[in-house]
Design a protein around this nucleic acid. Structure first.
Length: 438
RNA sequence: GUGAGUGUAGCUCAGCUGGUAGAGCACCGGCCUGUGGAGCCGGUCGUCGCGGGUUCGAACCCCGUCACUCACCCCA
């Protein structure tokens, strides 16, 4: 029999401690931002009825990419490919009891059956932030503000990212009323224009002609959709008045300036988005995938037979976010070393070592002790390699005086410290910058 | 689903038109029985992804296969 594989199944990742540490630090910053806006965390099952997604998630392609199986009770189930249907279900379940607006967030792992490539895995973790119960443009503003603050919280600068926003309804209105397209042509135009950045304007014009657009209509459509700012200028005032995104755009209150751009080419795949849609992009072309995206879905909760509760929200995924941080060299350093190691040169003092370690743990420090006997030099070498900052050396002479040696591996300094003062001195040491030996 | 690239030690890789498998790092030990990172010495480590073929002889050439990576399709 061949040995078991150590490789995770395709498209999934193991998170070794140093990777987990980075992920954890990044996401804890995001949690803090979201919670600072008063959002409450929830969770839901990783497996849902398949029909939850079949109903409204959108294209038949989504269905092809869902992990789907039949359980022993003959239920048709799916591993969640996204969180929004689940949260809509939960909101619907409490529809009569909730104080609205409801501000909720979660951090689920999501699955999609697709081939792995840069920025895309079959399993990824996504922070979802959703706001339910208002159609006000201020909901758009708040959601976009949170999104921007999340980017700032992980160390992004204003110039590092671009927030592209659009409004499906507004774009549809303009194309119908000002270019004279019928609804079918509008739908077709969206599909074709999605690819305009790849195939170029000539081919796009040809596709539009097939949909029955005149030359003038095609030119006008392309011109409008590829010049986002002008799009707003050219939209009828009553259309703009109805567009939450258009109204929110200039009124965002954020701790740093944000690059926001209206861009009608932001479509997004989910069919349930009713008007506002938006995505965050890295301004560095090395990392072309969107870091976060979302939109308004005013009809989703009503699918559960409950009163219509409008919603708006977005997801920010771990894969593209951490790619972004690494591209800009602002990912946090892994923190995997214990703060303190306690050791002794005298085998007979092992028990005292454990007692000292226990008392330091009571002080909230992360403390390890050697589990086997080795020479002090080897123990120090290993501690240094692990990145341990403080080493407590409990020798008989010092202990007789009620003291130990405290060695700061970060600065190669050693002092004798009274046991009673040890926690305080260790904390001071940990707060001091290290000084690398040349 | 389509296309391309890569598979050699735990890791990063070298290995000439085919001639018995290598380096650096890492790991373990010694020099150093109460003090780390350097240095020196020594040690452990491989079905050369797998299967078949050609050959006196294959890590190398040929065929197949699998895995991984990147891109396309599409999308969080």
């Amino acid at each position: 029999m061949s040995p078991l594989s150590t490789v995770p199944i395709p498209g999934t990742r193991d998170f070794f401690p140093e990777e987990m540490s980075v992920r954890q630090q990044v996401f804890e910053r995001l949690y803090r931002v979201v919670e600072s806006f008063g959002y409450l965390r929830y969770d839901a099952p990783m497996v849902e009825p398949f029909e939850l997604y079949a109903a409204k998630s959108g294209s038949d392609l989504v269905n092809q990419q869902v992990y789907r199986f039949t359980d022993r009770g003959e239920r048709d189930l799916a591993i969640r490919p996204e969180m929004t249907p689940s949260v809509a279900r939960m909101i619907a379940a409490r529809a009569g009891q909730l104080v609205l607006p409801a501000r909720w967030y979660s951090h689920p792992n999501l699955w999609r059956y697709e081939r792995k490539q840069r920025g895309r895995y079959r399993e990824h973790w996504q922070v979802n932030v959703d706001l339910f119960g208002t159609e006000s443009w201020e909901a758009e503003a708040e959601i976009l503000e949170i999104l921007a603050e999340m980017m700032f919280a992980v160390g992004a600068k204003t110039s590092d990212f671009l927030l592209r926003v659009s409004d499906r309804q507004l774009v549809v209105n303009v194309l119908q009323q000002q270019v004279g397209l019928d609804p079918q042509q509008v739908a077709g135009a969206f599909g074709v224009l999605d690819a305009i950045e790849k195939v170029g304007p000539e081919e796009t014009a040809a596709h539009l002609a097939k949909l029955g657009l005149s030359q003038a209509q095609a030119d006008r459509t392309i011109q409008l959709l590829t010049h986002g700012e002008q799009f707003l200028e050219q939209a009828a005032p009553e259309s703009l008045q109805q567009s939450n995104v258009a109204r929110a755009l200039s009124k965002l209150v954020t701790s740093q300036p944000v690059n926001v751009k209206f861009d009608p080419l932001i479509i997004r795949g989910f069919e349930y988005y009713t008007s506002s849609v938006f995505e965050v992009f890295d301004t560095n072309p090395e990392n072309p995938r969107s870091i976060a995206g979302g939109g308004r879905y005013d009809n989703l909760v009503a699918l559960f037979g409950k009163p219509r509760i409008p919603g708006i929200g977005f997801g920010m995924g771990d894969v593209t976010l951490i790619d972004f941080l690494q591209t800009h060299k602002i990912a946090p350093a892994p923190q995997i070393a214990p703060e303190v190691q306690v050791m002794t040169p005298d085998e007979s003092l092992r028990q005292r070592v454990k007692e000292i370690a226990a008392s330091l743990r009571q002080e909230g420090l992360r403390v390890v002790t050697p589990l086997d006997s080795r020479k002090l030099g080897k123990l120090l070498e290993r501690a240094a390699k692990e990145g341990v900052r403080c080493v407590v050396i409990a020798g008989g002479d010092e202990l007789a005086r009620g003291a130990v040696k405290l060695r700061d591996l970060g600065r190669s300094e050693e002092r004798e410290i009274a046991l009673t003062a040890l926690p305080v001195v260790i904390r001071e040491t940990l707060a001091t910058p290290t000084q690398e030996k040349p």
